[in-house]
Nucleic acid binder design. Structure first.
Lengths: 223, 223
DNA sequence: AGCTTAGGTGTACGCCGTAAGCCTGTCAAC
DNA sequence: GTTGACAGGCTTACGGCGTACACCTAAGCT
């Protein structure tokens, strides 16, 4: 189909997903509706269905698009360094689109898109390079993956008081105000430290704990 | 208000939240609408607004209700045992309502309900008993909490092929079918092990890694 | 020239959250 | 005992949602 006198780019699955990503980043996940995404493209809602199955398919596309930003290192000689890199990269792509974690959380089926699976393949490959195989590899993957996903989820959600991103931490004093002071003394005591903590350092802290645990459990041979 | 001739229980926030929980467990999160919950109670949608602020408030109530199932141990003498207990309990309450993890993931503000905060208070208290204080306590909490949340999220989502719950694992052969075989060899190799793995054992595996890491980092005094 | 088809549009249906107002039964104040 | 406030139900209505279905147009074939 040639471009009409309006000189409008033709739609495509990628363009639709990109537009949805923009809407999600700018206005939140609940703003991602067929009509809103279509408007973003100067088009009617029903036109999107020529390029995606349905809304679920669009959300799957969002997950894949986010994962496609994952960068792979050239040097993979040291597996712990590679694992560190992968973990940080995973967190980076998730935090680049803070609302996408809700989409992942809402999924009830395995991914099949090869773009979305690339990072997982890379992670398993790295685990294999560490000499961790079979059942142990799955253990290692789920432990690391769970940690990363959960950490980001708590981080972007400011779920238990500690947030990050560009939105500042909630003021500890204000949060404490909203709490029944005598019932949750340990939380109150922790609040100021939540505000002052560097989330990157926290993430690294747990990451090193897990990596060290994996190393002592499985040795540290490289390939 | 006395009970009318229809002998219907009066509504209350707790009854509304309970009904919503039932709907969510039976029909999924997207079925939790004002009208559906009202129908569950034999009532009209607008009646709910006399007991909850709005839908967001209802979802907050779901989170609190789930956390209220958290059981606390009597014996807290050994802090690692207590931490293990708390982690397992946290996972248990989340898995008892597999869709609630999406609600948590969608939250963008700290919790203030004391019922929902009880487990967090308990966790921080336990961490304190381990002699971990201040900034370190926040680190430990976020690391453990992130791990638990993320593990459950991946577990109930069957996100990367490995699921659990009563729904059986996806057949590894069938999943492999849907994959571009040559592009993701490590995933293909891991699939059968995902199917055969015990998720409880996986969870414990990572949990022990983290606990051991915390112990070596901070010593193991008890209180 | 005529056919197929890809890719856009418009209309319509049954959901959704919720604002606004109404109706009735309870209960405290008089 | 009457009255007035009000708690807690109900009804209606509005705008937005996902999407089924029918339609239109123009490109690319034979």
């Amino acid at each position: 189909m040639t471009i009409t006198e309006k000189t409008r780019l033709p739609l495509s699955r990628d363009r639709v997903v990109e537009a949805a990503l923009r809407v999600m980043d700018a206005e939140g996940l609940e703003a991602v509706s067929m009509r809103r995404v279509a408007r973003e493209l100067g088009v009617e809602a029903m036109s999107l269905y020529h390029h995606i199955e349905d809304k679920g398919d669009l959300l799957d596309g969002l997950c894949s698009a986010v994962m496609r930003d994952f960068r792979y290192p050239e040097d993979r000689s040291d597996w712990t360094a590679t694992a560190r890199f992968a973990a940080n990269e995973w967190r980076r792509v998730l935090k680049a689109h803070p609302n996408v974690i809700s989409v992942f959380a809402g999924r009830r089926k395995p991914m099949t898109d090869v773009d979305a699976l690339g990072p997982m393949e890379f992670a398993l490959e790295t685990i294999g390079r560490a000499g961790i195989e079979g059942r142990d590899a799955v253990y290692a993957f789920n432990v690391m993956g769970g940690y990363i996903m959960g950490f980001v989820m708590m981080e972007v959600g400011q779920m238990f008081g500690a947030g990050s991103l560009d939105t500042a931490y909630p003021d500890p004093a204000a949060v404490a105000q909203a709490l029944p002071a005598d019932r949750v003394p340990s939380i109150i005591a922790a609040l100021p430290h939540m505000a002052e903590c560097d989330p990157d350092a926290q993430f690294d802290f747990g990451l090193e704990l897990l990596l060290a645990g994996l190393v002592t459990r499985f040795g540290s041979d490289q390939a």
